[in-house]
Design a protein around this nucleic acid. Structure first.
Lengths: 138, 138
DNA sequence: GATACAGTCTGTAGCTGCTACAGATTAAAG
DNA sequence: CTTTAATCTGTAGCAGCTACAGACTGTATC
């Protein structure tokens, strides 16, 4: 209505809808500086544009890929300062990838132990249980 | 000194040491009912015995195996009511195992995406980066 | 016994990453 | 014009701990 050039502005609920991000989380990301303060209407309503949509999607996707909030802040800082280089980002990605692999290995070990122990269970209605034994006595 | 029959009692720091559980976490587990209130000395110091050691180890091991606090509370409730059966415990363990496997699969997908995307990186000192592209534009 | 220092007690606040709610204001719909 | 929906702000709550302040013990040394 009042925007002469750029595309239309979104209100918070709309941004929430198009990104899938929880309504309150948007405000939280603004408060913590991950999202910039948006323009406001005369009456104080937040008005978002495409840059906000992209940035929020960036955050959510990074989150989906398991990047920590700290990592994401780091990437955003690079971008905001236009200091990002493929070299740097690749390095950070590979570091995160290493963390993910460690986590997978940890979980696989857990899987092993659980599967092995459960396999020893009779599964009967008796109080003795190899799982509980394992937890109590190493 | 004042215990005529049972083994010696541990103070909180000692329980912490033998189990590896953080000092304050012990108090937290008591507050939340996962650990029973221990006996007290005349002057109010907590005095733990072997049953506390076992129970705390149980909690910590279950935690290490990725059981949620809720799951652990559930197991402890069974045990406390002497209602535990191998059948029931096996079932819960297998349910948790399924969760672990789901988690592993999720992480593997993440690993894939990260590895593939990072592989497209030139790794040079240029601002364009496939990782950032992927995060910004799907 | 005096003194010093460590250990313990309690209640409460802090942390992360959100999510929810209360009370006021504004927008949209009928 | 009235009702309902959306938004605003500040603040509180959640899990699962962890940390700290201020008071009280326990032990060691002199």
């Amino acid at each position: 209505m009042d925007d002469h050039n750029s595309g239309r502005r979104l209100k918070r609920a709309e941004l929430s809808k198009v990104t899938g991000c929880h309504l309150e989380t948007i405000r939280y990301y603004e408060k913590t500086g991950m999202m910039p303060d948006p323009r406001r209407s005369k009456t104080g309503y937040r008005l978002y544009d495409e840059t906000h949509v992209s940035r929020l999607r960036f955050i959510l996707r990074a989150r989906d890929l398991g990047f920590s909030i700290e990592d994401i802040r780091g990437l955003l800082t690079l971008i905001d300062g236009q200091l990002q280089t493929c070299s740097e980002v690749k390095q950070r990605t590979e570091s995160h990838l290493a963390d993910v692999r460690t986590k997978i290995d940890d979980l696989k070990r857990i899987e092993q132990v659980l599967a092995e122990t459960a396999a020893q269970c009779s599964g009967k209605d008796v109080p003795e249980c190899p799982v509980l034994e394992a937890l109590f006595h190493v």
